[in-house]
Design a protein around this nucleic acid. Structure first.
Lengths: 302, 302
DNA sequence: CTGAAAGCGCTTACAG
DNA sequence: CTGAAAGCGCTTACAG
């Protein structure tokens, strides 16, 4: 049959059968290893089920995201997996895709008021419980002055992680000093630059729960610059468990989000949803587990 | 028109018009930042021209790559951008996609004998000239014992980079000691583990040209473990200029491959090709420029 | 059971 | 210039 170079035309078949063999994947930032791993996981699971991934990238721009979604929806995908750009509105997304394909939102909640009749599934990390576990571990190691370092409070994941941190401190009966909560862009560079703020007052922390691994690695550099020794006289935890975390100096204690597994999970949830469009929407919050490495020494006995 | 939720069916339009608005992108390893950036660049440029990216991932497996290409080709893309898995054969690729879509190969040459009538464009980096420039710079800084560190000699990019290194040393009239060429997997972890091999003989190098940035960053950790101080008593260069290179300790002198720009370039080349299917095939080798940072001190004056 | 016809949602070439 | 018909490559429901 195909010895003469015949190639099956799946688009024609899909048109006739009124089904789709594609799934759209729209990512806020492919150059972030966390999302790149997620995309790899999605593609892996979709490929295994015979689906092809339509890739789109929003670069954290809601305008670009709208455009990309609009272009994707014209290919009538079986579903859409969206890791939203910061500050992307429910109403915007609804406008772009209508109700023509099931939507799975990953990692961040959409902002704005719900739109009547527009529903979607959600897959996210248990940011609050994760940050709480990291903070609790530092408390168990004897730390009493613990900072929450990095991230933008405008992002839902940062707010949730801060809550978990506050939960743990409140439970231990510790009042948080204002200068223990330091806001930075969630990048290595910015985290490096703000390290000195931790030591601006005399109730300086002996440990920091960082917003994510990039921030934690940046803070390590910043501390070294200030003559401190992370993993020796200062304890640091991260969030995500990116590959660099294990090979940092010192190796970083962090929360394991396993983005590749999340990608596979997202793909499977979406395909289930596509098969059962009217069953109730789900919101799945995945627990994240602490992976202990050498960056979290005991508190100084002083 | 679309107030009532009408959505244009581009697949039907493509079928009727006998054109395609998709391009397939098959990547060997999305979790490598270099390729993730490349993918982001491709998607960006394709999106701007109204094309949608079909994403596939081979995970460095030629078998999986064949399968992915087969599944992509059924969607009749306007073209295929392939960053091949290691050891993927021309004949294999031809079998999977036939001559139904123009092919652009990125970064690595396909292996095996050419297949008559099966042609493709190629976009790659000037590995040889790049490595040569890095080596020449180390020579200019006074280094005389320079290693080539990391990478698998079975990969064409590693062989090419080694040739550039040898070019520069030969030009300077320096004979290479066997233990100056150390093979490791191209990862941070492996590069870290083999650092001691540099100092196994008494003609130990004072500098190393590394296969890529991951290897260079790993080697830095390994040197620190051995009580050496990269950027002070040992010079290191990388290859790629991944984001981590600029924020390492010390910041890494490296060759700027700008994968995102390569992605945009690949997309544009492919669309040109799709518009002019019969013009002669091109092989474009992009120069890579040295970005100097603090990891390359002068040779010790001893 | 086999084979010709109708139809998915578009676009285009052709008749009125 | 407008409107109905044909056709892209498939699948499916129906006639023989």
């Amino acid at each position: 049959m195909q010895r003469q170079g015949y190639i099956y035309n799946r688009a024609a078949a899909n048109l006739r059968q009124r089904v789709s063999s594609t799934v759209a994947l729209v990512i806020n930032d492919l150059s972030n290893p966390f999302f790149a791993e997620f995309a790899a996981g999605v593609d892996e699971a979709l490929g295994a089920k015979g689906f092809v991934t339509l890739l789109g990238s929003s670069n954290e721009s809601p305008a670009r995201q709208r455009q990309v979604l609009g272009s994707m929806i014209e290919h009538h995908p079986a579903g859409i997996i969206l890791s939203p750009a910061e500050n992307s509105d429910i109403a915007d997304v609804e406008l772009a895709i209508g109700r023509h394909a099931p939507l799975l939102v990953f990692n961040r909640e959409l902002t704005g008021a719900p739109v009547a009749g527009f529903e979607y599934d959600f897959l996210g990390l248990d940011n609050r419980a994760g940050a709480r576990a990291a903070t609790a571990r530092l408390l168990a190691l004897g730390h009493r002055r613990i900072a929450f370092y990095g991230g933008h409070a405008s992002s839902s994941s940062c707010r949730e992680r801060r809550l978990g941190y506050l939960d743990a401190l409140a439970e231990a009966g510790i009042a948080v000093e204002p200068h223990w909560m330091i806001e930075t862009a969630p990048t290595r560079l910015e985290a490096n630059a703000h390290a000195a703020e931790l030591f601006a007052a005399d109730t300086a922390p002996t440990a920091a729960v960082c917003y994510n691994d990039a921030v934690a690695l940046g803070l390590m550099l910043g501390l070294a610059r200030l003559g401190r020794h992370p993993g020796v006289d200062f304890a640091i935890t991260g969030f995500d468990n990116i590959p660099e975390a294990a090979v940092g100096v010192p190796p970083l204690t962090t929360l394991n989000a396993d983005p590749r597994a999340r990608g596979r999970q997202a793909a499977e949830l979406l395909l289930q949803r596509a098969a059962a469009p009217s069953s109730p929407r789900q919101s799945i919050i995945v627990p994240v587990l602490l992976t202990e490495r050498e960056s979290t020494p005991h508190a100084p006995s002083a």
